[in-house]
Design a protein around this nucleic acid. Structure first.
Lengths: 142, 142
DNA sequence: ATAAATACCAATTTCATTAGTAGGTTTATA
DNA sequence: TATAAACCTACTAATGAAATTGGTATTTAT
């Protein structure tokens, strides 16, 4: 399993906010609508705010809203932010130290190819696409 | 991270055996060559034998050998066997119960498309390809 | 002014999975 | 028949995911 609840919840929230444009939406409201624990959602939203994907408005009447248009967020960018990495194997993770077996590794190219495939797929889809696809009944199956 | 050591070790072992054809190769020898703990490797080999991917020959002079030609094993089949599932998200796992949000899910099609992409990529590469690619210096980057 | 609603923050807990160990039993063969 | 091998069951340690707990700071509506 590559994508945890963190990434999946983040995507759902971004779509939710895109579908409720205008004023700031309180965390409580998103949590109820998406059936996610408020406190856990808080952690996820904090990271999205830190990276300027969302604007968090404090105080009464506050809440969260998108900082950009829905078509300016790729699925890949949101997942990389919340998941940390989308690498399918440890040796492709940026944070990992280089594998000592690399020079004689029979599988590295294959992993690299897989990684590229995944990244390009996820970077080719935006939040706007996900909204539109649902309305149109479309899908992304190639 | 989608692929754990179990799947990666399994692949390395299959390639190792493909590169040492003929007699049975004892676990001890594979473990040394691949620098994997004997006891942990045992667990992995057991599952490969159970699914008839390998033949385990008991007794003195015994060991493991491939049951088929290297080009008859796809990377996908080996990884599915050892990892259990290659699904990028929980809702695509066969064993998972159907998600109650499915009918209104904005992201399911996208996940499904990603899953298909991954499976097709991994099912399109065989152990023989991995051996050949290394010898030729090839890669799989599309 | 102030009460209420909100985001923000740090630390801890629970749970499942991964990764690996330990010790023994069975089987074949040299 | 001693030895080398696979096979088997059970356990343990480490890691990461998924929350939970208990607050503090900020803004606004009244």
């Amino acid at each position: 399993m590559m994508i945890s609840t963190k990434g999946r919840y983040a995507l759902r929230v971004m779509i939710d906010l895109a579908e409720h444009p205008g004023d700031s939406v309180p965390l409580k409201e998103i949590a109820q609508r998406q059936d996610i624990s408020e406190k856990y959602l808080e952690i996820i939203l904090k990271s999205l705010v830190r990276e300027k994907f969302l604007i968090g408005q404090r105080g009464k009447g506050g809440g969260y809203r998108l900082s950009k248009a829905p078509d300016a967020y790729t699925v890949g960018s949101i997942l990389r932010l919340t998941e940390g990495s989308l690498a399918p194997v440890a040796c492709l993770d940026q944070k990992a130290e280089q594998c000592p077996r690399l020079t004689s590794c029979r599988t590295f190219s294959m992993w690299h190819g897989l990684d590229k495939l995944i990244q390009e797929y996820l970077d080719g889809i935006t939040i706007a696409d996900l909204m539109a696809a649902y309305q149109a009944g479309d899908d992304y199956i190639i």
